[in-house]
Nucleic acid binder design. Sequence first.
DNA 1: AGGCTCTCACTGTGATCACACTCTTTCTTC
DNA 2: GAAGAAAGAGTGTGATCACAGTGAGAGCCT
Lengths: 247, 247
Amino acid sequence: MTRSATAPVARKEAPAGPPTPVGSVEEQVYRELRDRFMSGVFLPGQVLTLRNLAADLGVSPMPVRQAVRCLIVEGALEILPNRIMQVPRMTRDRLVELLGVRRALEGMATEAACRAITLKQISAIEKIHHSSRRAFESGDMRRSLAMNQRFHFTLYEAAHSTVLMPIIQGLWLQAGPFMHLAFSSTAGAHWDGVHHVELLQALRDGDPAAARQAIERDINKTAEALLVTPHFAAARAEAHDRRLPKA
Amino acid sequence: MTRSATAPVARKEAPAGPPTPVGSVEEQVYRELRDRFMSGVFLPGQVLTLRNLAADLGVSPMPVRQAVRCLIVEGALEILPNRIMQVPRMTRDRLVELLGVRRALEGMATEAACRAITLKQISAIEKIHHSSRRAFESGDMRRSLAMNQRFHFTLYEAAHSTVLMPIIQGLWLQAGPFMHLAFSSTAGAHWDGVHHVELLQALRDGDPAAARQAIERDINKTAEALLVTPHFAAARAEAHDRRLPKA
DNA sequence: AGGCTCTCACTGTGATCACACTCTTTCTTC
DNA sequence: GAAGAAAGAGTGTGATCACAGTGAGAGCCT
């Protein structure tokens, strides 16, 4: 059974006649919840219940249960010993880790994308960048963040990596609630898309190393903006106490 | 239990008293299935059904459903348009990607681990290495692979990264079935733990860069062994046809 | 005999009910 | 009056039933 001797194993694989592989309710719920996480609908520390979510989405608790379980596995949600589930709070250490992994993985994806991307795709990404910039200048942080996210994912999509893509999405999923909380309040006031412009140029030049560098700088800039958030001002002092018992 | 009269707000956050966060049946099923994936119980291409798994595990289909859903999200399992689920077959491209990401992430984890690891932990890892080597020399590939896995994860555990660890586990989960299939048959006959020894030395020297290099070489060696598998001999020629329409 | 169709077992999915457990609130008692 | 106990609502979890869709096999017709 390891390999099907009959060559035409493809039942209906490539053709994919029905355009709805995502037809199940659970899949819709899962996508909807993921969107909400990335859109900042959910706040760090917020408590969610199955029945409430089900009621909100107009479905039975059943599909929600499974979708939520998936989100827990992805680290977008956590379940306390009390059996109640909440969107995880962000700590400084965790944020640093997340951004470090993002740098590594999105750097890889950018390199791969740079090698496979078409001019048409580059133009699309540029359009998205302008939308983000416009939204930012008009003070619509929500839309600016959404466009920034779309900018990154459209880029990584060009890498055609079925391995990297889900992982990167998972990382954004984990950082999503906190990023919206942080940027909607104070931080990010002095954001410029300079590294996005650098990236676009590198893509056009077909220079993967430069593209990677641009993305890494972009993430670093995000990191700087996030780490000065007042959210960590108190946390830093507080963490100072429990730092010793580490080693 | 009844002492919450004077307690103001704090739910019960840091304490986390109950020592059973893994008590649920679904959690047990999930762990059991993950173990089976990593142990080579499931073969690439194998078809699984909820009810069969439930019967095997002696539980109702309910917890299995959720556990399986999580495994699908992690990429350890895939669901075809036919609605039937199978453990994904491995392609050469996918394997290359997986190993590339492993190199990056496990390199990071190794660096971090090298900075935080204790001598006691190093000794434990060395013991595991010897077990793996002994099993290998006695021809017990199954045990050797299991010990090799334990070697890596004990190392990464020392990094104390709640971000990296789940991702790395997911990568091993995806590669697990194929690795066992490949190594149990022919490949891997000329494996030596030389890079494991290099790693141990680097850990003792407290040299993160060297440790990272050792792990990367170890993964590269695994990659070489896997990519010459007869499994890809035919696949490579076959893939040659559909390579063009890429760009 | 060969090709077609119908049937039936079986799949994952969704809904509903039942249960153990936690937390809150209210009532009882010192 | 205040502390403690008991009842209540609400939680996630598990089991069971119902259902649409798929796939294979038997049965029929040409």
